[in-house]
Computed example of a mutant assay.
Amino acid sequence: SGAVASDAQHKFFRLQISSSAYSDPHIQAMSAMSLRRGDVVVAISQSGRTRALLDAIQLVKEAGATVVGLAPSGTPVVEACDLPIYIDVEEDNENYTPLPSRIAHMAVIDILAVGVSRAKGPSVREHLATLNRGLQSLRVLREP
């Protein structure tokens, strides 16, 4: 789930949304206690049962922020969230390969990012174009 959170942080950062991704439970707790009403946390869990994440969600709610949760339905994580988004994917328990749920989580993050981008309107397109132009100097030119 940490890799998905990092991907989400990158997408929202590019859309001019102040964002951070924390996997360490101590930093999650400190971050949660630093929030206030109007802030939004996206809690991501492939199992929906991670105790440290549940503890952080409680702190977020105590701070007055909103929690969007991406986790399997009927799990403690989505039950603790203000806005649950159910990610129900069958995993192969014989071989530990959580690839299907990771892809499902990333697809939902992409959908959320597109929604944010559309809501922000043309200004975000101009910002993304500016970023793209600025990054050109970091790339090796193609040879003819």
Rank of each mutant, 00 (worst) to 15 (best):
Y96F: 13
Y96A: 08
Y96N: 10
Y96R: 03
Y96S: 09
T97K: 06
L99A: 12
P100N: 02
P100D: 06
S101L: 05
S101Q: 09
S101E: 08
S101W: 01
S101P: 02
S101V: 13
R102Y: 13
R102L: 13
R102I: 09
R102F: 14
H105N: 05
H105W: 08
H105M: 14
H105C: 08
H105F: 12
H105A: 13
H105L: 15
M106E: 09
M106W: 02
M106V: 10
A107K: 03
A107W: 15
V108G: 06
V108C: 10
V108W: 05
V108I: 12
V108R: 04
V108F: 11
I109N: 01
I109E: 01
I109G: 03
I109V: 15
D110G: 14
D110V: 14
D110C: 11
I111T: 10
I111F: 00
L112F: 12
L112V: 07
L112I: 13
L112N: 05
L112H: 04
A113M: 03
A113L: 04
A113V: 02
V114H: 00
V114K: 00
V114P: 00
V114I: 14
V114N: 00
V114C: 02
G115Q: 10
G115W: 08
S117K: 09
S117E: 15
S117F: 06
R118M: 14
R118V: 15
R118P: 00
R118Q: 12
R118S: 07
R118A: 13
A119Q: 03
A119E: 06
A119V: 02
K120W: 04
K120I: 04
K120P: 00
K120E: 11
G121K: 00
G121V: 03
P122E: 15
P122K: 05
S123N: 05
S123Q: 11
S123D: 14
V124A: 08
V124D: 06
R125Q: 09
R125I: 06
R125W: 12
R125T: 08
R125H: 11
E126G: 06
E126A: 14
E126M: 08
H127S: 10
H127I: 05
H127R: 09
H127V: 05
H127W: 13
L128T: 02
L128R: 04
L128E: 14
A129S: 12
T130S: 13
T130E: 15
T130C: 07
T130M: 14
L131R: 07
N132A: 11
N132S: 11
N132T: 10
R133T: 07
R133Y: 11
G134K: 01
G134N: 11
L135M: 14
L135V: 04
L135E: 14
L135K: 06
L135Q: 12
L135D: 11
Q136F: 04
Q136S: 14
Q136L: 13
Q136H: 07
Q136C: 08
S137P: 00
S137Q: 12
S137R: 08
S137M: 06
L138A: 10
L138W: 15
R139D: 10
R139I: 03
R139A: 09
V140C: 03
V140H: 11
L141Q: 04
L141A: 11
L141R: 01
L141C: 02
R142N: 05
E143K: 02
E143M: 03
E143N: 05
E143P: 02
